[in-house]
């Protein structure tokens, strides 16, 4: 379904869907970063990560419900409320992620890798159930606070709304901040050292447990930010958004090379483009199949993902 019946120029249509895809992709990237960072440090596919994201959106929804906001009103009040929701969701998701790590994954640090993985599936199940109780089995409306009007002239050929701008405005600074944190702070350096070799890092005096907790906190915080962004962007949430978006984000992380931060962003942008372009050129209902088909093809040729380093097996 083309957005404009009166834009016959195929290149403009392509550009429009590329913009949409990159917007969607940057949202996936926020979630994907949580998967990839946790994997980089503790080699665990945190299956519950998408569900943490889902719970974050319910926290925001509950706050909107408490204040009694359902649609756009006074812009300043709305802006303050949105900021409050972002803070609440970020704090909630970050804390939840640390708590899960402390209670459930930490005792399994030295267990075979399958044990934390299966536990993560268990945590995902429990969170799904909590989301089901919280929001019910149906889709719930998320307050539509941002205008849908085109930021360019309404007659412009390319459409870019305040919502798209908000997504970019949230995701890009967060990713930049994360890059600066990982590259230039001492905790970030400790993080990279632990990812490379936990034993050596420990011998150098790094408290790996602090590093692990920080990683879970950052991953959760990014998921919290993503959850409010998602709610404001899509305007419907349900307990199932965790699984759907988590799966795409996880796919993105693996596509880029799991454990690799720029890789996760690259993978997420690719997935965003594939879903957006695929829904226009192939058909909405084939997009999921297309995403996974492309994933399989890419992994066949690059078994460690696009940017993943090809590690030699240790003997």
């Amino acid at each position: 379904m083309p957005l404009f019946a009166d834009t016959p120029d195929p290149w403009l249509t392509l550009l429009q869907y590329v913009i949409l895809g990159l917007t969607k992709g940057s949202l996936f990237a926020l979630i994907a970063l949580g998967y990839t960072m946790v994997y980089g440090i503790v080699e665990l596919i945190n299956f519950a990560h998408g569900n943490v994201f889902m719970l974050g959106s319910f926290v925001a929804l509950t706050i909107f419900g408490l204040v009694g906001v359902e649609k756009a009103g006074d812009p300043f009040q709305d802006a303050a409320l949105i900021v409050a929701c972002f803070v609440a969701a970020i704090v909630f998701c970050g804390t939840l992620n640390i708590a899960v790590d402390r209670v459930i994954y930490k005792p399994l640090r030295n267990a075979p890798k399958l044990a934390p993985l299966v536990s993560a599936i268990g945590v995902a199940y429990i969170f799904d159930n909590v989301g089901l109780f919280w929001g019910g089995p149906q889709d719930v409306n998320f307050p539509n606070l941002l205008p849908d009007a085109n930021l360019f002239d309404e007659t412009a050929k390319i459409r870019f709304t305040a919502k798209d701008l908000m997504v970019v405005g949230v995701t890009v600074p967060l990713m930049l901040a994360l890059t600066v944190f990982v590259k230039f702070t001492s905790l970030g350096t400790a993080m990279r050292a632990t990812a490379q070799n936990p034993v050596a890092a420990q011998l150098m005096g790094i408290n790996t447990e602090t590093v692990i907790a920080t990683t879970f906190a950052i991953g959760g915080a990014l998921a919290g930010a993503a959850s409010v962004t998602y709610g404001l962007y899509v305007n419907t949430i349900s307990y199932q958004i965790g699984f759907q978006n988590g799966l795409y984000a996880f796919t993105a992380a693996v596509l880029g090379g799991i454990g690799n931060i720029p890789g996760a962003v690259l993978g997420a942008l690719i997935i965003g483009l594939v879903t957006s372009l695929g829904s226009f050129y192939v058909g909405e209902r084939w997009t999921s199949a297309l995403v996974f088909a492309i994933l399989i093809v890419i992994l066949v040729f690059r078994p460690s993902g696009l940017l993943g380093s090809r590690t030699r097996e240790k003997v």
């Binding site: 536990s119 599936i121 429990i126």
Partner: peptide, 20 residues
């Protein structure tokens, strides 16, 4: 039945912790 996922999840977590 509403608690199904919770019970499944808890069972998996406890199994992995105490009887992997």
């Amino acid at each position: 039945t509403g608690w199904r996922l919770c019970i499944f999840g808890l069972a998996l977590i406890l199994m992995m912790r105490f009887r992997p």
